[in-house]
Simulated assay, not measured.
Amino acid sequence: MSIVRVREHVNPLSKKYQTPITPPDWQTVYALPDQPLHLDIGCGKGRFLLEMARQQPDWNFLGLEIREPLVAQANRWREELGLVNLFYLFCNANNSLGPLLESLPAGLLQRVTIQFPDPWFKRKHQKRRVVQPEIVIVLANALSTGGSVLLQSDVEAVAVEMRDRFDNHPAFTRQHRDWLADNPMPVPTEREVSTLKRGEPVYRALFLRT
């Protein structure tokens, strides 16, 4: 698999990314569109979902990513592997997630992952982070009862902010008082693997839609 090199940081507040995406026809995106859906917000190169889709053919997988060249590359890999339960979309989740999820049949969205999002360290840039209160509300409205949200970051301040925003919404219940020691997903992301190899911590929180 060849790698496309793109800018590491993209400002989601720039004018280029302010037009919400038009939802696709889900009946043509997946071979079996009624299967439960796993949504990965900020999927990067998409390798996590590639392996998840191979391991769990009875689920559909959707990756959202704001860097368009990575989406094009990931969809080429998907086609080469013949995965009919996987799709990637280029969009800004902060303004496109609502329309996308509203276009899905009720009850399909059952699992969400937000893993190692761009930390935007400077205070004036933190409004660019993906997990804003509006995103939490959108997911609360779309996620089926009993569905899960997994948050992961190697930056504690970012993990705390994400965790607290889901904690503050009454529709979500955190499953562990402390950070999760292990990843409940069967596939780690590349960032998780490299972080753990360096001996650095990963901060995880798992929520259920109640």
Rank of each mutant, 00 (worst) to 15 (best):
E51P: 02
E51T: 09
M52S: 05
M52K: 09
M52F: 05
M52H: 11
M52E: 13
A53N: 03
A53Y: 01
A53K: 00
A53P: 01
R54I: 00
R54N: 03
Q55E: 15
Q55V: 04
Q56P: 01
Q56F: 07
Q56N: 08
Q56E: 12
P57Y: 01
P57H: 01
D58I: 04
D58W: 05
D58T: 12
D58V: 02
W59Q: 15
W59D: 10
W59L: 14
N60H: 03
N60L: 01
N60Y: 01
N60G: 01
F61Q: 11
F61V: 10
F61D: 08
F61Y: 15
F61C: 12
F61S: 09
F61M: 07
L62K: 06
L62P: 06
L62N: 07
L62Q: 08
G63P: 03
G63D: 03
L64W: 10
L64D: 12
E65N: 10
E65F: 08
E65P: 08
I66T: 14
R67L: 07
R67F: 09
R67P: 04
E68L: 07
E68N: 11
E68P: 03
P69C: 07
P69N: 06
P69V: 08
P69E: 09
L70F: 15
V71P: 04
V71E: 04
V71R: 05
A72C: 06
A72M: 10
Q73K: 15
Q73N: 13
Q73P: 04
A74E: 05
A74F: 08
A74V: 10
A74S: 14
A74R: 07
N75S: 01
R76S: 00
R76F: 00
W77E: 13
W77Q: 12
W77K: 06
W77D: 08
R78W: 03
R78D: 02
R78N: 03
E79Q: 11
E79C: 04
E79N: 11
E79K: 09
L81P: 00
L83D: 02
L83I: 01
V84M: 00
V84Y: 00
N85W: 04
N85Q: 06
N85I: 06
N85V: 07
L86M: 12
L86T: 08
L86V: 10
L86F: 11
F87N: 12
F87R: 13
F87S: 13
F87W: 12
F87V: 00
Y88M: 05
Y88F: 15
Y88T: 01
Y88C: 03
Y88H: 09
Y88R: 03
Y88N: 03
F90D: 13
F90S: 15
F90G: 13
F90L: 02
C91S: 12
C91W: 07
C91I: 12
N92M: 04
N92G: 04
A93T: 12
A93K: 07
N94D: 05
N94I: 10
N95Y: 11
N95P: 06
N95R: 10
N95C: 14
N95S: 12
N95W: 10
N95M: 09
N95K: 11
N95D: 09
S96G: 07
S96H: 05
L97M: 10
L97S: 02
L97W: 00
